[in-house]
Amino acid sequence: MGVVTSFDIEATELGDVVFAQFAHDAADTAEFLQMWGKEMENSPRELTAVLIVAQQGGRRIAQTYAVWAGDDTERAIPALERFLSIAPVLQQSAQVVPYAIVMAPAHHQHDGQSLTRGRAALVDHVDADTAALVAGLFDRRDTSFFQIRAVGGAINDVPANATAYAHRTQNFSLFALVRRGHEEQMAQEWGKVPATGLYLSFETHDHAAALNKAFPPDTLERLRRVKGAYDPQNVFRGNFPIRPTTA
């Protein structure tokens, strides 16, 4: 809807956290994803995690990056250990570190718009059908990279009408890269995900249906009024164009 020229950010002072990394053999992808989702939902509020499943050579590896908010290792370790029994563990580590180290910036050169396509979905649970669907994407080579981000928690404490991001009930944000030549098949399969929304920045196509999944009706109407006030000529119409309204 526009170009950001500056940010004013109020930082929150944070101390040490427990940062853990696990690598699992995800050969049984569907079973692994379902178990991982259940463990994440049953975890204490202090624990959040990101899961990446990728095809590496002839193996399917699942990498978990988990953060416990604080340095209470007596509570953090049991919560983290629950993930170790999901599937064969290839590598594991956990350490108490300053939060700033976990979020150390990565410097990547960007030369323009990526040709990579991605699909996104927000779901309440990683149920058996969703887990099997994702496993099928790998089996058919529709994707070679899949990610789950745990949401919920403090995200869902925010009222749905407080920001343009109005999805405050889901537990997981899903994302999959689309292999070239597999776009049509991927679209058909991804449409079966029981999504109740999507995170706009992880979606790369410009279908009108995706706009409605990104913003509930009331939120979209608010954005149209903002667009009508600041960009009535619809200059900023790339990505997911929001039609301005003056009503």
Rank of each mutant, 00 (worst) to 15 (best):
T5G: 01
S6V: 01
F7V: 08
T12Q: 00
E13R: 07
F19S: 14
Q21W: 08
A23M: 07
E31I: 09
F32V: 09
G37L: 04
S43C: 04
A49F: 08
L51H: 02
R59N: 12
Q63W: 11
Y65A: 14
Y65M: 14
A66R: 10
W68N: 02
G70D: 02
E74P: 03
E74D: 14
F83V: 04
P88A: 13
V97R: 12
Y99W: 04
I101A: 11
V102K: 05
P105G: 04
A120T: 00
L122T: 02
V123N: 01
H125S: 14
T130N: 07
A132L: 05
V134S: 07
F138K: 01
D139H: 10
R140S: 15
R140Y: 11
R141Q: 12
F146G: 02
Q147T: 11
R149L: 11
R149M: 07
G153W: 04
G153F: 01
A162Q: 11
A162E: 12
A164C: 08
A166W: 02
R168G: 01
T169A: 08
N171Q: 15
N171M: 10
F175L: 13
H182Y: 07
H182A: 15
H182D: 00
A187R: 06
E189W: 11
G191C: 06
G191N: 12
K192P: 03
V193K: 03
G197F: 00
L211Q: 10
D218T: 12
V226C: 08
D231H: 10
P244N: 13
P244C: 13
T246Y: 06
